[in-house]
Amino acid sequence: MRVHLKIWRQKDAGTAGKLMDYELDNVDNHMSFLEMMDTLNEQLILKGEMPVEFDHDCREGICGTCGMMINGQAHGPVPGLTACQLHMREFEDGATIYVEPFRAAAFPVKRDLKVDRSAFDRIIQAGGFITASTGQPAEANTILITHETAESAFDSAACIGCGACVATCKNSSAALFTSAKIAHLAKIPQGEKEAAKRVLKMVSRMDEEGFGHCSNTEACEVECPQGISVLNIARMNWEYTKANLLKD
């Protein structure tokens, strides 16, 4: 198949970028989207042009490194996928495809499609952990957690930190990312001791990093490759209110 690509090219955060046109022939419909990008880059290099810089690593949807807007949607048109799992069979022969970086004030562009998502690490640093140093913890089976609670905690913990939620949200809110960690740790007995402190610190760091407020449109859940539910945001709000009310 043949595709027309309109790809965002930008030298660095301080330089203006623009969409550039590329034509690509002989695209196999079993190719992943990123393999199509590899093919384009091979051709650009051989022509003496700079290849398109894009983030990618595991190419199996779990590391959360890849992230780009494909035809205006985070990770492209198929729900529940990362860009690396998207295959060219989802596009029509002759299709025009727009490829742009995740856009948010808190995610500055480094080059082309590569963005800086270190704000996510700083949100976790603010409190996204259980204070349990390496040592001699209690025997694992002394902490009983029902099947349902463990599964529900897992659902929240499955977030891969890709940033699709932020890129999708019209307010560039990191509420889904932040709340998923808050909910994961608040749901289980090991984490609930610090829940109040955690939610206050993480929410305030989220705001400091320049993410917007939750827009309540639930677009983040729709675009999330792991299907993280917006109920996590409800849980975060509840934990936040509770923590503020019970604060000394």
Binding site: F129, I130, A132, P137, A138, L144, T146, H147, A153, A157
Partner: peptide
């Protein structure tokens, strides 16, 4: 033996039986 204890203390959501055991 210790590793499982350590991971549970950190909040790793291992699969559980209905009664709560690992």
């Amino acid at each position: 033996l210790n590793l499982i204890d350590q991971a549970v203390a950190q909040g790793v959501p291992f699969a559980r039986e209905y009664g709560g055991y690992l």
